[in-house]
């Protein structure tokens, strides 16, 4: 079975220290004003009397690119610069040499996990710290987390920490009802907030392309067919031009 890297998160362990977001920013040189990962928080519910009984009404939820199984970002990319690397590790990656920064994938992500890098001019996002992994190290956010809320590994390997944690516990995936991208980020149940992913939006230009694409291929095909018909006619039927003078005489009308 192919490798499928995933993150299994016990958000109840998260204390909102945001060490993961800083570690990521430093490791990956993420520019000012942009983030590759995040910690979201639930809205405290003060109408619930429980909050007075020393129980925190807040829940923190670490996240990042969910490296989805059915990635809408990949569907939005015209060139395959954004792709799911199934041959290697199942992660969603950006080929920095092929990406021209058209940004089609950015609104196509329901999680807001992508941004256009202001100096590299290509789209940037979490790659599970590929360079660290090549050295045999864990992603920066995972290794930094003091409470070990983020657990990372190949969920298709039954002995990995992530697979074991997933097997032992009930888990959920956070999705938008209208665009379920089958994220590879699993939260051990009772996480919050849940309603924040937005509907994936294909850019208008890409939508138009998907619509008129077959039409353009059709026009090219029809012309090719026309050429073949003319060629066939030329090869099969002898068609000599009548002497113009005679044809003129014949059609001369009074």
């Amino acid at each position: 079975m192919n490798k499928q890297l995933a993150m299994v998160i016990d958000s109840s362990l998260c204390i909102d220290c945001k060490a993961c977001t800083l570690a990521c920013k430093i490791e990956n040189n993420v520019p000012d004003g942009y983030w590759r990962n995040w910690v979201k928080r639930s809205e405290p519910d003060f109408t619930n009397p429980e909050w007075m009984n020393h129980r925190t009404p807040l829940h923190f939820q670490p996240g990042g690119c969910m490296h989805c199984e059915a990635p809408t970002c990949v569907q939005a990319c015209p060139t395959g610069a954004t792709y799911k690397d199934d041959a290697k590790d199942g992660a969603i990656k950006v080929d920095p040499k092929l990406c021209i920064g058209c940004g089609s994938c950015i609104p196509a992500c329901p999680y807001g996990a992508r941004y256009k890098h202001p100096t590299k001019n290509i789209v940037d996002k979490c790659d599970y710290c590929e360079k660290r992994r090549e050295r045999g190290e864990l992603p920066a956010c995972v290794i930094t987390c003091p409470t070990k809320a983020r657990v990372f590994g190949d969920i298709n390997d039954p002995n990995s920490d992530a697979a074991l944690l997933l097997k032992k516990n009930q888990s959920i995936r956070i999705t938008n009802k209208e665009s379920d991208t089958k994220p590879n980020m699993y939260y051990l149940s009772a996480t919050a907030p849940l309603n924040w992913p937005v509907k994936a939006k294909m850019p208008d230009a890409i939508q138009l392309w998907k619509l008129v694409g077959p039409l353009i291929w059709g026009v090219v095909g029809l012309n090719a067919l026309g050429v073949l018909v003319m060629l066939g006619k030329q090869l099969l039927i002898t068609d000599k031009e009548p002497d113009t003078d005679i044809s003129r005489k014949e059609t001369r009308r009074s």
Binding site: I100, G101, C102, G103, S104, I106, K116, P118, T119, N121, I122, P203, D204, A205, I206
Partner: peptide
């Protein structure tokens, strides 16, 4: 090409 030098708006590029 301008998109790769940061001189074109993404919507234009699309």
């Amino acid at each position: 090409i301008l998109s790769q030098t940061g001189n074109a708006d993404t919507e234009w590029v699309q």
